[in-house]
Structures are given as structure tokens and as C-alpha cells.
Amino acid sequence: MDEQQLQKEAGGIYQLVCDALDKFGFKYRKTEEDLRVELTLRSSDLDISFSARVYPKIQLVRFRSELPFSVVEGNEVKIALAINLINMSAPSGAYFFDAKDRSITFLVSQSYRGSIIGVDAFYDNIDCCLHFADKFNEKLFFYDRGKFELDEFFPGN
């Protein structure tokens, strides 16, 4: 595919991502020139900064939610252990911990290479982000702050 075709294809994918967000009833900000959407989801515990972006050249969509806290200095190993433990349980998506800036992000990606991807697949990607945010964001925060132990992430295991 040439660049023009890739860009056109990406535009169609971007619309499907927006359609999937509409299915959730979310309000979001569009940056069409970057094929990006952003929104803040307010929940009862931690607010979630969420974005999705289409990458035309690699035919990939990345859905990303950022946790609204920095890991306490000195907790890098304990957070890395928790991240790996949670990611073992995740059939799709993963938490990413950057020890340099001590940030944690949840990312799930969707390739559309040589495929016809329906809006429901993008809905599932978004749902995956929300599911993990709901299940683990607050736990990660309290674990980092010393109020939660590693074995409490999966009680009963």
C-alpha cells in the first residue's frame, strides 16, 4: 500500500475507534491530524487519563491509560514485581512501568494489518483498558504507598 492508501485506511480505522467510544457514551477530544482521541474518565477512586491513536504506517491502534501517580522512589523493584504478576494474568493488554520517570501506563494495541476489523474489536480494546483500570489501578496505588501487599493482588492464589 502506498502512503496515501495507508492514510485513507487509517482514517477509516480512526472513525471506527470514535464509533466504539460513542458506544460507551464517552465525551472525548479529537485531534484528527494526529488520528488521536483523548478523554478523562472520572471514577470513584482514581481518574483515568485515556487516549487512543492510529499509526497508519504500521497499521496499529494503541489504547493507553495513564495512572495518575508517580511511583515512590525506591519502590521500583516492588512495582516491577507487581507489574509482571498482573501482566501474567492479562490475556490482552499490559501495564508498563517506566523506572526513569516512575510512571505506570496500561496499554492495549490492535493491529489491522491485512484485516477487516469491526467496531466491536475496538470496543473490546477500550473495555480491556477500563476493566484493568477498575481492577488494579487503585491496588497499584495503595501497594506503592505500602498499604497493600503483593499477595493481595490475587487473593486466594
Binding site: 490475556p91 493491529s111 489491522y112 494489518r113 491485512g114 484485516s115 476489523i117 470496543y123
Partner: peptide, 20 residues
């Protein structure tokens, strides 16, 4: 190394498998 994609309501092509 883990890589996964949804195929809900979709048709997966061999190009995606090739990429994976």
C-alpha cells in the same frame, strides 16, 4: 514476549499473522 489482538466481528488476514 506476549502479543495479542481482538478479532471480534472481524476478519483476520494472513498479513496480521505474518506480522505477529
Amino acid at each position: 514476549y506476549k502479543l495479542s489482538y481482538y478479532y471480534t466481528g472481524s476478519i483476520i488476514g494472513e498479513e496480521m499473522i505474518d506480522y505477529m
